[in-house]
Measured scan of single mutants.
Amino acid sequence: TTTITTTNEEDARRIATEWKNKGYTVHVEKRGTTFRIEVR
């Protein structure tokens, strides 16, 4: 599992989409101002 964190919502969406397009399972969680993107 790879975890990526960013405070930028646009980055979070872009990163999540990129990983999904590669065939990975992506889970995005917002904690306060931080977005945690888990890639499996």
Score class of each variant (00 low, 15 high):
1 T>I: 15
1 T>Y: 14
1 T>D: 07
1 T>K: 09
1 T>C: 09
1 T>W: 15
1 T>G: 11
2 T>I: 15
2 T>Y: 15
2 T>C: 08
2 T>K: 12
2 T>P: 06
2 T>N: 08
2 T>A: 10
3 T>E: 07
3 T>P: 04
3 T>N: 06
3 T>W: 14
3 T>M: 11
3 T>G: 04
4 I>H: 06
4 I>D: 01
4 I>M: 08
4 I>L: 09
5 T>F: 15
5 T>V: 14
5 T>E: 13
5 T>Y: 15
6 T>G: 02
6 T>H: 03
6 T>S: 07
6 T>P: 01
6 T>Q: 03
7 T>H: 11
7 T>F: 11
7 T>W: 10
7 T>G: 09
8 N>H: 06
8 N>E: 06
8 N>F: 06
8 N>I: 07
8 N>M: 05
8 N>L: 06
8 N>Y: 06
8 N>G: 05
9 E>M: 08
9 E>L: 10
9 E>W: 14
9 E>G: 07
9 E>F: 11
9 E>P: 09
9 E>C: 05
9 E>K: 08
9 E>D: 05
10 E>G: 08
10 E>V: 09
10 E>K: 09
10 E>Q: 10
10 E>S: 09
10 E>Y: 09
10 E>C: 07
10 E>F: 09
11 D>T: 10
11 D>L: 11
11 D>P: 00
11 D>G: 04
11 D>S: 07
12 A>W: 03
12 A>E: 01
12 A>M: 08
12 A>T: 04
12 A>N: 00
12 A>G: 02
12 A>V: 05
13 R>L: 14
13 R>I: 14
13 R>A: 10
13 R>D: 10
14 R>T: 07
14 R>E: 06
14 R>I: 07
14 R>G: 04
14 R>N: 07
14 R>P: 00
14 R>L: 08
14 R>Q: 08
15 I>F: 05
15 I>R: 02
15 I>L: 07
15 I>V: 07
15 I>G: 00
15 I>Y: 05
15 I>C: 04
15 I>E: 03
16 A>Q: 05
16 A>M: 09
16 A>S: 07
16 A>R: 03
16 A>F: 07
17 T>L: 14
17 T>R: 11
17 T>A: 14
17 T>D: 13
17 T>N: 13
17 T>G: 09
17 T>W: 12
17 T>V: 09
18 E>I: 11
18 E>F: 15
18 E>K: 08
18 E>A: 10
18 E>Y: 15
18 E>T: 07
18 E>N: 07
19 W>G: 01
19 W>Q: 02
19 W>H: 04
19 W>D: 00
19 W>F: 10
19 W>T: 01
20 K>M: 14
20 K>Q: 13
20 K>E: 13
20 K>V: 12
20 K>R: 15
20 K>N: 06
21 N>E: 12
21 N>Y: 06
21 N>R: 11
21 N>V: 08
21 N>P: 00
22 K>W: 06
22 K>Q: 08
22 K>E: 04
22 K>T: 03
23 G>D: 02
23 G>K: 02
23 G>I: 00
23 G>R: 02
23 G>S: 02
23 G>F: 02
24 Y>H: 04
24 Y>F: 11
24 Y>G: 02
24 Y>A: 04
24 Y>W: 06
24 Y>P: 00
24 Y>E: 01
24 Y>S: 02
25 T>R: 10
25 T>D: 13
25 T>A: 10
25 T>Y: 12
25 T>W: 13
25 T>I: 14
25 T>G: 05
26 V>W: 00
26 V>D: 00
26 V>L: 02
26 V>C: 00
26 V>M: 01
26 V>R: 00
26 V>K: 00
27 H>W: 12
27 H>A: 08
27 H>T: 14
27 H>G: 04
27 H>N: 11
27 H>Y: 12
27 H>V: 13
27 H>L: 12
27 H>F: 12
27 H>P: 00
28 V>P: 00
28 V>G: 01
28 V>K: 01
28 V>A: 03
28 V>T: 05
28 V>F: 06
28 V>S: 03
28 V>E: 03
29 E>Y: 13
29 E>F: 13
29 E>S: 12
29 E>A: 08
30 K>S: 06
30 K>I: 10
30 K>L: 11
30 K>M: 10
30 K>C: 05
31 R>N: 13
31 R>M: 14
31 R>Q: 14
31 R>E: 14
31 R>T: 14
31 R>C: 05
32 G>L: 04
32 G>K: 04
32 G>Y: 04
32 G>Q: 04
32 G>T: 03
32 G>I: 03
33 T>I: 11
33 T>P: 13
33 T>H: 13
33 T>R: 09
34 T>G: 09
34 T>E: 14
34 T>H: 12
34 T>P: 01
34 T>W: 12
34 T>Y: 13
34 T>M: 13
34 T>A: 09
35 F>R: 01
35 F>S: 01
35 F>A: 01
35 F>Q: 01
35 F>P: 00
35 F>D: 01
35 F>Y: 14
36 R>A: 11
36 R>D: 07
36 R>H: 15
36 R>Y: 15
37 I>V: 10
37 I>W: 00
37 I>R: 00
37 I>P: 00
38 E>S: 12
38 E>G: 04
38 E>M: 12
38 E>C: 06
38 E>V: 15
38 E>K: 08
38 E>L: 13
39 V>C: 05
39 V>W: 04
39 V>I: 15
39 V>D: 00
39 V>Q: 02
39 V>G: 02
39 V>T: 03
39 V>S: 02
40 R>Q: 12
40 R>G: 10
40 R>N: 10
40 R>D: 08
40 R>Y: 14
40 R>P: 04
